[in-house]
Amino acid sequence: MSKLTLADLKKIRDEKNKEMTRRDADKEIQVVVGMGTCGIASGAKETFSAFIDELDKSHVNDVVVKQTGCMGFCSVEPTVRVIAPEMPDTIYNKVSAEVARRIVKEHIIGRKLVDDHVFDHPSRDILTQ
């Protein structure tokens, strides 16, 4: 990687931003697993692997599974955010490996929210306001 110029910085920002916010029907689905210390302590690593495994088994390819920092809901970890086309941006809590598999089957494939695990968003995103 050579050093960034201001123009490079803008370019990466625009490309990444598009990638992270795209929501059109034929594009990617994102699964974002909260992996701060508290998430990991509550089993977020198993949750992460369960997503990868279940997606593999179900032959779903257009999904990115990635980690993020603690979303702040320490009493209901692990937390997972799912962004899929035509679905509300959803935060799930207490996502064990088993719930992760349900999310793949019900939310990602079946286009339904998974009962009992939906959690409210803590705030609006200040960067898109």
Binding site: E15, K16, E19, M20, T68, R81
Partner: peptide, 17 residues
């Protein structure tokens, strides 16, 4: 602001926001 949005191990995601 970025917790829950970006992968903390990927500088490009930080740049993306």
């Amino acid at each position: 602001r970025n917790c829950g949005f970006i992968n903390p191990e990927d500088i490009e995601e930080y740049i993306g926001r």
